[in-house]
Simulated scan of single mutants.
Amino acid sequence: MMMQTLPALLVPQKGETVIDYWMSMSPVAPVFGLEWRFSPLFREVMPDMASTPAMAGSVVLTEGDLHDEDLEEAEEEAKAVEAAEADDLTALKGVGPKMAAELNAMGLTSFAQLAQMTEANIAELSENLTAFRDRPVRDDWVGQARALMGQRT
């Protein structure tokens, strides 16, 4: 009985894409919104197991299944960790609140990041600043950041 249905199960369905065909071979096909190709065979061989919720039908994730609260909480935690690691860049000579906000927007939030910058990085940073483009070099932000971190240049 099983051998007669197996060839029929392997024939692609009308309108089925190649990807859907191959994914339907996997027992996890319902997770992707596809019917597992061998579920009729499975129901035939193990009828009592076919009624379990895991095998009863396809599982299709919808946007509502994603928990926005969990995503928001994870984003808040990431921001809190980032804020904890952030230094007050206004401690650098030539960096005021506006400049610090601009540097933070560029992803520069700590003295360690500035201390590790090369001349090429500083040149790129200077080009991307909206005002006072010579400040990173003129005020030696790298040296100041290292000094504030307790490092020697």
Results as ranks from 00 to 15, higher is better:
residue 2 M to H: 10
residue 3 M to D: 15
residue 4 Q to A: 08
residue 5 T to K: 13
residue 6 L to D: 13
residue 6 L to V: 15
residue 7 P to M: 03
residue 11 V to K: 10
residue 12 P to N: 05
residue 15 G to L: 00
residue 21 Y to M: 02
residue 21 Y to P: 01
residue 22 W to D: 08
residue 23 M to Y: 08
residue 23 M to Q: 13
residue 32 F to H: 14
residue 32 F to S: 09
residue 34 L to P: 00
residue 35 E to Y: 12
residue 36 W to F: 08
residue 37 R to L: 02
residue 38 F to K: 00
residue 41 L to W: 05
residue 44 E to M: 12
residue 44 E to H: 11
residue 47 P to G: 06
residue 49 M to C: 04
residue 53 P to C: 10
residue 55 M to T: 05
residue 62 T to Y: 06
residue 62 T to V: 07
residue 65 D to L: 06
residue 66 L to Y: 14
residue 67 H to N: 12
residue 67 H to M: 11
residue 68 D to H: 15
residue 69 E to Y: 12
residue 71 L to K: 10
residue 74 A to S: 10
residue 75 E to T: 13
residue 75 E to I: 14
residue 78 A to I: 10
residue 80 A to C: 04
residue 81 V to F: 06
residue 83 A to M: 08
residue 84 A to S: 10
residue 90 T to D: 05
residue 90 T to M: 04
residue 91 A to N: 14
residue 96 G to H: 04
residue 99 M to W: 04
residue 100 A to T: 01
residue 104 N to S: 09
residue 106 M to Q: 06
residue 109 T to L: 04
residue 112 A to I: 00
residue 115 A to S: 02
residue 120 A to W: 12
residue 121 N to A: 06
residue 125 L to E: 05
residue 128 N to A: 13
residue 130 T to A: 06
residue 131 A to C: 08
residue 133 R to D: 05
residue 134 D to P: 03
residue 134 D to G: 14
residue 137 V to W: 13
residue 138 R to D: 15
residue 138 R to S: 15
residue 139 D to G: 09
residue 140 D to K: 15
residue 140 D to L: 13
residue 142 V to I: 09
residue 143 G to M: 09
residue 143 G to T: 11
residue 145 A to I: 00
residue 145 A to Q: 02
residue 146 R to K: 14
residue 146 R to W: 04
residue 147 A to T: 13
residue 150 G to N: 09
residue 152 R to A: 08
residue 152 R to N: 05
residue 153 T to I: 08
residue 153 T to M: 09
